[in-house]
Amino acid sequence: MEKQTITIYDVAREANVSMATVSRVVNGNPNVKAATRRRVLDVIDRLDYRPNAVARGLASKKTTTVGVIIPDVTNMFFSSLARGIDDVASMYKYNIILANSDENNQKEVQVVNTLLAKQVDGLIYMGRSISDDLRSEFARSKTPVVLAGSVDPDEQLASVNIDYVAAVQGATKQLLDAGNKKIALVTGPLSEPISGQYRLRGYKQALDGAGIAYDESLVFETEYSYQAGLAVFKQIQKAGATAALISDDEMAVGVLNAALDAGVRVPDDFQIITSNNTKLTQMTRPQLTSLDQPLYDIGAVAMRLLTKLMNKEGIDEITVRLGFDITERQTTK
């Protein structure tokens, strides 16, 4: 037998109240007598009534859903950001639709269109770069967008991140101060703004400050994966580097394990600083020294910023930079 859809009208009739009263109870409006509220809630329970989010959205022009576009749902960097987003969304009574874009430009545009077709009130984007196609989709839709842990070099879109230039400069300087002259920078594609513009600039500034010439053979572009880290270590060794600054924790674990497998002593012969301070950094032996960017907070602040944009509240600054630190562990001296 097909399940009958229970409507707000059925609840009102059974509880012997107006539909407006049922609506007030469902939305937590305090202007309802306690006895009436109890009666309505009992009927809702008995009939198993669930408010229709779509219908509510049509009435209020809001669906109270937010689309979150995540490049790789298996990477701890993004899942840590997503936790912060989700907690603040729940606090402000928004539901989240999570969409995986596989770090693929075409799929990103497709995912954005799918989310917009679901009438989301706002979007949070965590991709590592913004293609022109994606930028024009964002502009056309008029839906508020916030970047989390990502940057817009043109500063047209709201974003929450850290000062990547200063972070990489500080980490590189620490490796230089420890006596390393040849430091590898292991990163994703330099076509991505964070890697190509900000990380590279911080790295060059630190070398410059120490009077060391920049050597592009010490910069390695690779995928953000454990396998890529394993594979790139041989090239790092061949280039004569005695230390590496690595832009992803999974990649760093790969480099560390390849070094240990090759009989290299870490940190005595080779030092490593990774970038995201996810749980992985404490699971390795030796444990990984890492830049510590507040991933949960970046997600939480991005979601709060989005609620302000969706409600057309005033905003002082669309680019929000949070603080960072370096957490010392056992892969540096």
Rank of each mutant, 00 (worst) to 15 (best):
L116H: 11
V301H: 14
D72A: 07
I8A: 04
D48L: 09
A239F: 10
Q119A: 12
D269N: 15
L176N: 12
A239G: 04
L305Q: 14
L98H: 03
V120A: 15
L260V: 11
G84N: 10
E108C: 00
A139W: 01
R83L: 04
Y125W: 11
N105F: 03
D102R: 04
R13E: 15
Q227C: 05
S159N: 01
D268V: 01
I315G: 02
L309F: 10
L58C: 04
D261L: 03
V145T: 14
V165F: 01
Y164E: 08
L41H: 07
N311W: 11
I246Q: 10
T21H: 09
A15V: 14
E192R: 11
N161Q: 04
S195H: 15
L230A: 03
A53Q: 14
G28I: 11
Q287L: 01
E2I: 14
M126H: 11
D102G: 12
E137T: 00
V186N: 03
Q174P: 10
Q237D: 13
T284S: 10
L98N: 02
L256W: 08
Q271R: 05
A117D: 15
T143G: 05
Y296R: 06
L200Y: 01
P153I: 09
L245A: 07
D248E: 15
K279P: 07
D42H: 04
A210D: 05
M1E: 15
E317D: 04
A259L: 11
R38M: 15
K312Q: 13
L134P: 03
I85M: 08
L295R: 00
A12K: 03
D121Y: 13
I236T: 11
S101E: 09
G263H: 04
